[in-house]
Design a protein around this nucleic acid. Structure first.
Lengths: 238, 238
DNA sequence: CGCAGGTTTGAATGTCGTCAAACCAAGTGG
DNA sequence: CCACTTGGTTTGACGACATTCAAACCTGCG
């Protein structure tokens, strides 16, 4: 597949079913480029726990998360696991020119992806300075998030860690609105929360109970969280 | 300063005193571009503990670390501190188009920098696809390193963390040679090690003593480390 | 109803943090 | 030259917080 072939697509036709969620990769493209993109995307749905095989896979593609949450994790040889990132819609997953590092991607909830073959996206990137810039910005933002989380893992108490995670989920799923009260669904079970926070399941559960007793959150069905005062929770998060 | 003005520099003259350490930013430039770079660089030396004010500073520049080690850190409001990265020569510090995040940079040891004004480097970047690519690669590598360290902070024991740090320093200062025994100087004091590892000074000291008793390292003057068996230390690091 | 998976709670243990003192090397001044 | 300070490191005793092991508890589902 050559650049010429890609540009020969006749009708600029936007990837209809998910274009609204395509900010990560579409916002900087021309109509023609969007047309190219639309003809090569493939939409897939995944169940919770399903491996997505985006990273450290030779035959790799890139994907926009159009719905749901994807967890990125690394494991030690003896089985200890640490989540190193969460991807919410509309994040772009996968890495151009990627140096392989043994990260695995897995659906945390029901997940919809809009996949793009590696070659197509790389060709589009080669022709778009805007897209290059966006890619750099995305990786820098992920770097900032990773470093922020290093502070959480290295210096916060268990209760502060849990509060930090609740804030993170709230900011990414509840539209980033600053207004309290906020209400949202946890995309992660207690086990995944523990793996993200560097704690055990039991400790996570205890600290959630503690935050509940402190009146900082109310919880129904183990998953549905309501935060009456976002600022108070933020204070509790250290 | 315009692109034209930059390109009008007459003699391609390499940044003499540190070009050998310039891999990070020079390797992909044309002779003319190197000339531009050379006429605008400024070399500075810094004492341990000196703030470098690279990030989160409005009047910012970029810099190659030509010698020594720089520590990047974040602090919580109540003063708790976490190192989120170490920059060894010849890393490039600073961030193009940076979204500000409150990271501070400080010399960990005696440090030599080769600074480049923000505008100059951004202009060079605009004209060089190779340089854009290198910048992306660098940020992706830092992302990998940050995530690797998240595993260390979230899932490793105190002794494993210390072993991990010794391996990190060994790999970056001892030329990346895989051959044992390896010998190197620690660029960090116990306090900085603790801040990087998410531990206290006392715990770091105790764990170092433990590794010494286990025969995995020998230490002189609190700073000079010898690792008789790199593979054994790697095993101990989890 | 009863099972299965995930969650919560309890009691005991252990690892790391806190507080405190001793140690050590280098530098200063009498 | 030696006493004294200073900053960093090491070691010890104790306590707190998170883990471990174990049991009880939901919630959804066959």
């Amino acid at each position: 597949m050559t650049i010429k072939a890609l540009n020969d697509v006749e009708i600029p036709q936007v990837c209809r079913s998910c274009s609204a969620r395509h900010d990560g990769m579409c916002a900087s493209l021309t109509p023609a480029e969007l047309g190219v993109l639309a003809t090569h995307t493939r939409h897939t749905h995944h169940r919770p726990g399903e491996a997505l095989a985006i990273e450290s896979d030779e035959i790799t593609s890139y994907a926009n998360v159009t719905d749901g949450v994807v967890k990125l994790s690394r494991v030690l040889r003896d089985g200890r696991q640490q989540l190193v990132g969460l991807q919410f819609a509309p994040d772009l997953m996968g890495r151009l020119f990627g140096t392989e590092s043994p990260i695995t991607a897995e659906a945390a909830s029901e997940v919809d992806l809009c996949r793009v073959p590696k070659l197509v996206l790389e060709t589009l990137v080669a022709g778009s300075n805007e897209l290059k810039r966006r890619l750099l910005d995305q990786s820098l933002q992920e770097l900032d998030e990773a470093r922020e989380w290093m502070v959480t893992l290295g210096r916060k108490t268990a209760a502060e860690r849990v509060a930090s995670l609740l804030l993170l989920v709230a900011s990414r799923t509840a539209g980033g609105s600053e207004a309290s009260p906020v209400s949202f669904e946890l995309p992660l079970g207690r086990g995944d929360m523990a793996d993200f926070l560097g704690l055990t399941i039991e400790t996570v559960s205890r600290q959630i109970s503690k935050l509940r007793n402190e009146g900082l959150v109310t919880i129904e069905n183990h998953r549905h969280v309501t935060v009456p005062d976002l600022a108070a929770l933020r204070r509790r998060a250290g």
